[in-house]
Computed example of a mutant assay.
Amino acid sequence: MKRILIATALALALGFAAAGASAQYTGPSAVPVMTVKALQADGKDDQHAVLRGKIVSSVGDERYLFSDGTGQMKVKIKARLWPAQKPVDAQTTVELVGEYDKKLIGESHFDVKEIRLQ
């Protein structure tokens, strides 16, 4: 009987943990929505930002070309971040949440932490 109670408690705890892991916050954020032009001109290394626009092409190795109408920037998106519920193409408007990786030498890019479909 004791084993059954422990197993049940463990199953419930794991179930609640899994349910919490899939929840997402959708309210307001202190991280600003920025344009590519503004981020490239004034952005600091490791600055958190949100970009809104379209992923226009793949350039290989988890890197994509992103455009928001003010400019274009390479973004790095890990495979696990792509939304499973809907495919993303060059016509899909997205919000990319992440950090600006500003390079002194070489090409700067935006390191994506989350993709939101619009």
Rank of each mutant, 00 (worst) to 15 (best):
T93L: 10
S108Y: 06
D42V: 03
G69T: 07
L65K: 11
A49N: 11
R80Q: 09
A23V: 09
A19E: 11
S108A: 05
A30D: 14
S108C: 02
L39G: 01
Q72H: 08
I77Y: 00
S22I: 09
L14F: 15
Q24D: 14
Q24I: 13
T35H: 09
S67E: 15
S29D: 12
P32Y: 06
R52S: 12
A84C: 03
S29T: 15
G27T: 01
E62R: 04
H109V: 00
A18P: 02
Y25L: 01
A23N: 09
G71D: 10
H109P: 01
Y100E: 04
P83I: 11
G106L: 15
I55S: 02
G71Q: 09
E62A: 09
Y100Q: 01
G60A: 05
K37W: 06
T92C: 02
I77S: 00
A38S: 12
D45E: 12
D42Q: 14
E107R: 00
L14K: 04
Q85H: 15
I55V: 13
V75L: 08
H109K: 01
V31T: 15
Y100F: 14
G43S: 04
G53Y: 12
P87F: 07
A21R: 01
L96E: 00
K113Y: 01
V75W: 11
K44E: 10
L81M: 07
F110L: 00
T70G: 06
K103G: 03
V88I: 15
T26Q: 14
L51V: 02
G106N: 08
Q47G: 12
Q47D: 07
A23L: 13
L81D: 05
I105A: 04
S108T: 03
H48I: 14
T70E: 12
S57R: 10
G98V: 08
Q85L: 13
E62Q: 09
S108D: 01
Q47R: 08
D111C: 06
K37L: 14
H109Y: 15
R52Y: 10
H48V: 07
T35P: 04
L81K: 01
D111L: 08
K102Y: 10
D68R: 03
A17S: 13
M73Y: 06
G60D: 08
V31Y: 10
T35N: 09
A21W: 03
F110M: 01
P87L: 05
Q40V: 05
T92S: 06
A18Y: 14
A38F: 13
H48A: 15
V33L: 12
Q40S: 06
S22N: 12
P32S: 09
